[in-house]
């Protein structure tokens, strides 16, 4: 439909000039990118050489070395153990952290600030660094891995839990307070039931995340299949390394399938 009579108000422009701030950000980013690309020495020649090397690796990796599969299976099982134990303890500990960090359940503002600081510290330090720290503290082996996963899980899950708790509809909690219920009863009676579904989803995702990090934690000596992988790569046993990678792939994908099945049932 077209209008024949002239418009009284001017049409809005098709483009608007970006603000000075946007221009500055784009310029700084471009400068960093160009400098970075030069410093990291990304050249076509090196990339091509890399592809050739990758071909050598694959050539030596095939066929995968299937001997000693039982040893690998046991290490994989140990990785699973680390993930399950770490994430379970982590999720259980996340709950009090989340309650202390959420605006509507924290006893006082300063408790909330401190708890949030602790949780974000746990999250900011990557799991591999936690593992390095715990390897120093408790020695090589799966225990360091479990502790690292606990820290990583709390940093992640406590934050999501507390955000969910803050989003909870205040009505039911108010109704329970109005019956004369104490604060803990209100939390257990109204807030936790309303957040349960989302917390379950977060927990399942934490398990997947923990399994993936449990694999890599072995690279720094915190137990599990990663130890075998690091050893195989260092000794140039690429065929064995490929077996390990395939094994990890199968377990992780299988676990993700299982977890999405559970999620469908719960939510």
């Amino acid at each position: 439909m077209s209008t024949n009579h002239p418009l009284e108000t001017a049409l809005p422009p098709r483009f608007r000039r970006p603000s000075l701030f946007t221009c500055a950000i784009v310029l700084v980013f471009l400068a960093l990118f160009i400098q970075g690309a030069m410093a990291t020495n990304v050249t076509l020649e090196r990339l091509l050489r890399g592809i050739v090397n990758l071909g050598h690796f694959l050539g030596r990796a095939f066929p995968p070395d299937l001997s000693n599969l039982d040893v690998l299976a046991w290490s994989m099982f140990e990785t699973l153990n680390i993930a399950i134990v770490g994430v379970t303890i982590g999720i259980i500990l996340s709950l009090p952290f989340a309650l202390l960090a959420a605006r509507n359940t924290a006893p006082t503002p300063w408790v909330r600030t401190i708890t949030r600081f602790i949780v974000s510290t746990m999250r900011t330090i990557p799991d591999l660094i936690w593992a390095l720290i715990f390897v120093v503290a408790v020695g090589l082996g799966p225990m360091a891995g479990v502790l690292a996963i606990i820290m990583d899980t709390i940093g992640f899950a406590a934050r999501f839990f507390s955000e969910r708790i803050e989003e909870v509809h205040p009505g039911p909690s108010e109704a329970l307070s109005a019956t004369g219920a104490g604060k803990l009863s209100v939390i257990g009676g109204a807030i936790l039931p309303e957040t349960l579904a989302s917390m379950t989803a977060t927990s399942l995702y934490s398990v997947e995340k923990a399994l993936r990090s449990a694999v890599t934690l072995g690279l720094v000596g915190a137990g599990g299949i990663g130890v075998e992988l690091a050893a195989a790569m260092r000794l140039f046993n690429f065929d064995r390394a490929l077996t390990i990678i395939l094994l990890i792939l199968v377990v992780v994908i299988g676990f993700e399938q299982l977890s999405s099945q559970i999620r469908k049932r719960v939510i």
Binding site: G171, P172, E174, A175, L176, A178, T179, G189, A190, P193, E194, L196, A197
Partner: peptide, 13 residues
């Protein structure tokens, strides 16, 4: 004091 709310405020789940 019993309170009856406009939005009922029952706990879901």
């Amino acid at each position: 004091i019993g309170v009856v709310f406009q939005q009922f405020n029952l706990v879901q789940n």
